[in-house]
Computed example of a mutant assay.
Amino acid sequence: MSTIATPDRASAWQAFDWQLVGTEPLQPLQHMALDEVLLDEVAAGRRPPTLRFWEWASPAVVLGIFQSVRNEVDEAAAQRHGVQIVRRISGGGAMFVEPGNTITYSIYAPKALVEGMSFKEAYAFMDEFALEALGEVGIRAWYQPLNDMTSDAGKIGGAAQARRGQAVLHHVTMAYDIDADKMLQILRIGREKLSDKGTTSAAKRVDPLRSQTGLERDVLISRMVDVFRRRAGLRPGVLSPRELALAEALIHEKFATDAWRGKVP
């Protein structure tokens, strides 16, 4: 089950001036670059702690920084389905995403928020608001250490973290809806896990929030934002022209390069 925050830890959120940013749908490489830029901006004190919900403009497989392309992805299947392969700056497992089919968010926080916590504690702590929101719409959800969210019906999503200087990036992708057949064609690890468990249905492992709640995706996101606001306070914000320009430069210098994508062949 998820770690229950102590009063001191619960109030830790309120020590910071949180900002909410969202964007129009962006390409996968833009999201990868923005995560690095906003993490660095919070670490440098140029941006307040921030919660960002993502919108995807096109489908992608997002690899963790240490994952092998060939071990995780059937590249021919990805190309056939028009699915881009990108690599993020955090660890964790591969995620298959399509526009409108996931709920993805990032938290860019001062490291002081999780000071003294183990990695296991920090993961669960930073997602308590999301689990509380799911509970309010009838999903009994909990954290499966180290970085999985699960429910009685199956896995909901996964988290990853990266730390740099005095800031921590925590981001999550949750399955709202899912094309299980396509996912299994593209992700090799999914095939292996399903085979190991003697099942042919991805729904046995990843159960989307749409089927569990019957609610629209925007409704679920709004509930998560409301719970975060109750816990931490949250004011509207925007991405600055400088941040967007830095992200665009990073795409060309890093995230779109073969050296980064193929960091682990």
Rank of each mutant, 00 (worst) to 15 (best):
G64Y: 06
M117L: 13
M174L: 15
I156H: 03
I103H: 00
T200Y: 12
L146P: 11
D127K: 10
L113W: 02
G262C: 12
M174T: 06
V227Q: 02
H31T: 08
I103A: 00
V172D: 02
L38Y: 07
A245Q: 14
W56A: 05
M174S: 04
L244P: 00
P25G: 02
D196E: 15
W142C: 09
L184R: 13
V61I: 14
Q84I: 12
K120V: 14
V97H: 03
L239W: 07
Q67H: 07
L187C: 12
G100C: 10
E55P: 03
S151P: 04
P265W: 10
G165Y: 07
V264N: 11
G116W: 08
L63Q: 01
R261C: 12
H170V: 12
Q79A: 15
T200D: 15
N71W: 13
L234D: 08
E253D: 13
Y143G: 14
G214V: 02
A122M: 07
R205N: 12
A202I: 13
I139Q: 03
A77D: 07
R80H: 14
A256K: 09
L38N: 03
V97W: 01
S222H: 12
L246V: 14
R229L: 01
F228E: 06
T3V: 15
G135K: 08
D179S: 05
E55S: 12
D35F: 02
A167N: 01
Q14A: 11
K197H: 10
A109W: 04
D218L: 13
V227K: 01
A43H: 02
R140S: 15
L215D: 00
T104W: 01
L113F: 01
A5P: 11
T6F: 07
L20W: 00
V83A: 05
P28S: 06
Q14Y: 02
T150Q: 10
G158M: 06
S151W: 00
V206Y: 01
F129M: 03
R191E: 09
L146V: 15
A60Y: 06
D207E: 14
L209W: 01
R188V: 10
V219L: 10
V225N: 06
T23D: 11
L215V: 00
E243I: 03
F96C: 02
G91H: 04
L113M: 05
V238D: 13
E132P: 00
